[in-house]
Structures are given as structure tokens and as C-alpha cells.
Design a protein around this nucleic acid. Structure first.
Lengths: 174, 174
DNA sequence: ACCTGAACACCGTTCAAGT
DNA sequence: ACCTGAACACCGTTCAAGT
């Protein structure tokens, strides 16, 4: 007699995301996730090959969620930057992980599109991808450094962000 | 009767760095490090509080090493960027870790100085820190994205790097 | 079909005992 | 002083057995 599912893949991913943010990557154990969705750890292996596969799904879901917000913020680069930064501050642990493992092509593409479209409006289609990479690399690096506490040499971090955005857009316009 | 030391802190850190690059962060176990320096795992706790403390020392040593190379490359921003990128390609695993944990202030300061001096030559002392942060954030983000395979949407990655550097410097000059 | 207890391998860490 | 074997807690993972 088939036992009914006690949870779903999406529920597991959501639970893992919450544990990730509250307890960090090290606290994201299969056991902790299992308890949260009401099953035992071995059951999770019916849904995900291993912990890394579950982590990859968490990252994919994170990128999807970021992509949605970026779409709502385009085509203004300042709004995109602010949206990106808000997201990183809201979900620092997931953000940190976003560029550690290789994200699925689909999610990556969807998240990149609003950036490329916005860049295209500024520098033209020809250079849109390069410009989007410049913008994204800066924002990603800035936030990763901010989150890891690399900005401890004085100065105002908010002002540095505004300055960077302004100079960067000026460079793209030049 | 005192037993003579069979290794040194620096040897342990060097061994850990090599294991990190060849086997990844997950392969960097206390046991693997111990074997490499010729002791048993428990002995390492005489030298480092725990695995995280050892990892922090590896990161500090990495930043120190990067700092030395940057000093040799200043004050040309293009050379600094190329040096930074070469370093990331040479030691991808250590590079990835550099901005996950909080690095010691001393190392951070030493590595940042050549960048701030070079930025100062371009934009003046007043804005040197902000400009250095713009440059470093871009380079860090770009390399982290390159290493994590985020640049899979086509286009030439080398060209994107050159383009980014050029536009960024143009923005700082403007 | 999905879930579970039991088991295994592996890892970080502690500590009393060795030299 | 530094090193070690033994032990413990914890985690990822497998699998045969349950419903």
C-alpha cells in the first residue's frame, strides 16, 4: 500500500533555505531539514541525490527569486543595484553561495536578462553583455566584500556603493 | 622529557593550502593535513584552536601572498587587474575562500594599500578609497563569477575583462 | 510508492597517558 | 613540551524492512 508523500521538493527546498539563513551553511544538515519538513533524514534521498544536489536546488531557487526582483527593477541601473543589494542584505547566506557552485543555465539566463536589457539601453546591443558583466561583477564583488567584512578600512560603505555605481555608469556612457 | 616539534605552524598552513587547491575545501580535513606534515590529527589542535582557525590562517596567508604580488604591480591598474586575475586562476580554491570568512585586519590592510595608492594616483587622495573599492569589487566579482562558471551566456570572457577594466578606468577619469 | 530504523564510514574534537 | 591512541558526538549516506 503506497504511503502518501509527507512533503514536497519545494517544501524541502524552502525549509533548507530558511535553515541556511538562520544557521549558516554548516548548520544546513540533512537531519535539520528533515525535522523541519516532518520526515527522517533518509527520506530526503528519495528526492535529492545528496546534500550537494539539495544545495544546488537552493541556489537555483535563490537565483530565480533574485531574477524576479531584478525584472521588476529594470531598466534603471540604480534601481537594479539597490535591488541587488537589498537582496544580499536580506539573504546573506544564500547570496554568498550563489557564486560558489555552478548554477543551472536556465536560472542564470533568467536572472541575467533584465541586466542585459538594461545595459543594452545604455550602451547598445553590441556591448550589452560586456556591460552587464561589468555591472554585475562590480555589484557582486562589492556585496560579497561587504558581507564578509572586507570594508573595515574606514570610509562610508553606502557612499562607496553610490560612488561606484555613479563612476561605473559614467564609464559605460563615455 | 620534552618531545621535539615534528612540524611548524607555517608548514601546517602550507600543507593545508596545497590540499585546499588539489582537493577542494571539502577535502581539507584535519587528518589529511596531519598526514601531510607527519603527525596525527589531534596534534594539530596544539597549534590551531580548530579547523576554522586553521582555515582562517590559510586565508590570511593567501591574502598576504596576494598583497605581495599587488605591490609589485602598482601603480598601473591594468597590471594590478592582470595580477589579481592570474592569482585567482592559479589558486582558485583559496581565492574563493578569501571573501567568505573575515580576514585579519593586518593582511587586509597590506593587500589594500597598493590598490589605494594606485587609485589615489588616478582620482586623488580624497576619493582613493572609494575608487579602490570600485576597482577591487569589480575584479573580485568578475573572478568569482568566472571561477564559478557564471559566464556561460556566450561572449568572450577575456574581452569582457578588458572591456570592464577600460570602462571602469574611463569612469574613474571622468 | 514513500518512509523508517539500523548500520557504516568519516570527520572534528577531547583527553588521559606516553616520551 | 609535544605527540598519540582511544573515545565521543555528529553527519552523510545506504539499505533492508515496514506500511
Amino acid at each position: 500500500m503506497p504511503t502518501p508523500s509527507r512533503t514536497t521538493n519545494d517544501q524541502v527546498i524552502a525549509a533548507a533555505s530558511e535553515i541556511l539563513e538562520s544557521n549558516g551553511a554548516a548548520g544546513l544538515t540533512m537531519q535539520a531539514v528533515a525535522v523541519r519538513v516532518g520526515v527522517r533524514a533518509p527520506s530526503l534521498y528519495k528526492r535529492f541525490r545528496d546534500r550537494d544536489a539539495l544545495l544546488a536546488e537552493v541556489i537555483a531557487a535563490t537565483i530565480d527569486s533574485l531574477g524576479d526582483r531584478l525584472v521588476a527593477a529594470e531598466p534603471d541601473l540604480a534601481r537594479l543595484a539597490a535591488t541587488y543589494r537589498d537582496f544580499a542584505h536580506e539573504r546573506p547566506e544564500a547570496f554568498r553561495l550563489m557564486f560558489t557552485a555552478s548554477a543551472p543555465y536556465e536560472s542564470l539566463l533568467a536572472a541575467a536578462e533584465p541586466l542585459i536589457r538594461s545595459a543594452s539601453a545604455l550602451v547598445g546591443e553590441e556591448r550589452a553583455l560586456d556591460a552587464a558583466r561589468l555591472f554585475t561583477a562590480w555589484a557582486t564583488g562589492f556585496l560579497q566584500m561587504e558581507l564578509s567584512g572586507a570594508f573595515r578600512l574606514g570610509g562610508d560603505v553606502d557612499r562607496a556603493f553610490d560612488y561606484g555605481l555613479e563612476r561605473l555608469v559614467a564609464g559605460l556612457r563615455a
